[in-house]
């Protein structure tokens, strides 16, 4: 077997696992947009905050899993507070207003992270450090693990949305906010909780990404753009569209790395966005809130 083929397979595996981690960010983003028309520019900072919270608890307890739980929980609560204090009063207003407000919040959070933790990159040890052999190359087990975990979380979200009362409230509110109110659904609560869930998913993603990339204050900015591209390519408000687009973008960038430097690989996802917008301005998959 020739070397290029082996490279291709390994890079594709890397791409799929990266894509699934990003899918956590993107699906939260798309869920929040679908239900309250809020484009959360601060979503990258929630991703970054999750990585930091996880790192703090990981260094304190030495347990990868406690770090994961702490990251999700802390940022879930933070998301609730952020939605209630800043965004709730903006729901129903011009979407541009919410873009500006969340942009302001992202600046504050990012700078606050530099202030609190400094600009240096922090390391989080992976839960599993083993490798499996793929051809003559070593492929980290950790990547398989996070890919599975991400899929499980997205599957869990889907189950939550389709079983039980709260999931029904979420779906009803996404389809018709006023009518949901008229059926006695506590729409403000639904909005806050959905924002919290989206925040927690971003935090989980940030923490799972940490052993691969390290933790630093700009990790949010660096990844949010990709998350936006994924959400637009996948169709705003479409959960499975976002997951597919995430895997696609992840693979595209991983394969690009074979030929160009990692810094330039991101241009390929930009190109994917531009082509998508040319062909179908509302994304490849039609947004169907289900």
């Amino acid at each position: 077997m020739n070397e290029l083929f082996q490279d291709l397979v390994v890079q594709m595996l890397i791409g799929i696992s990266t894509g699934l981690i990003l899918a956590l960010v993107a699906s939260g983003l798309t869920l929040i947009f679908g239900i309250m028309d809020v484009v959360n520019f601060a979503h990258g900072e929630l991703f970054m905050l999750g990585a930091y919270m996880g790192w703090v608890f990981f260094t304190m307890t030495g347990s990868f899993w406690l770090g994961l739980a702490a990251a999700a929980l802390c940022v879930f609560v933070f998301g609730l507070i952020m939605q209630r204090s800043a965004l709730r009063s903006l729901i129903g207003s011009d979407p541009l207003t919410t873009i500006l407000a969340t942009f302001g919040i992202s600046l504050v959070l990012q700078t606050a992270a530099i202030w609190i933790w400094g600009p240096t990159v922090r390391r989080v040890g992976a839960a599993f450090t083993g490798h499996v052999a793929v051809f003559h190359l070593q492929f980290p087990v950790y990547r398989f693990l996070v890919a599975m975990l991400s899929l499980a979380i997205i599957g869990g979200l889907w189950l939550f949305m389709h079983r039980g009362r709260f999931g029904l409230w979420i779906r009803a509110t996404t389809q018709d906010r006023q009518m949901a109110l008229a059926m006695g659904i506590p729409v403000p609560l639904v909005h806050t909780v959905v924002f919290g869930i989206g925040a927690a998913m971003a935090a989980t993603s940030g923490y799972l990404y940490a052993p691969i990339l390290g933790v630093d204050p700009t990790m949010g900015v660096n990844n949010i753009l990709r998350a936006f591209i994924i959400v637009v390519v996948g169709g705003m408000g479409n959960l499975w569209g976002s997951v597919l687009a995430a895997v696609f973008i992840g693979m595209l960038e991983a394969l690009a790395v074979i030929w160009v430097s990692p810094a330039l690989a991101v241009i390929f996802s930009f190109a994917a966005l531009i082509v998508t917008l040319l062909v179908r301005p509302t994304g490849l998959f039609v947004a169907v809130p289900r």
Partner: peptide, 22 residues
């Protein structure tokens, strides 16, 4: 607003407004 229907008021709007994807 969401407490009003819970007091026992049902609302059938003019364009029906059923949840089409449920």
């Amino acid at each position: 607003p969401y407490r009003i229907p819970r007091l026992g008021i049902g609302y059938v709007p003019e364009d029906r407004r059923i949840f089409p994807q449920l």
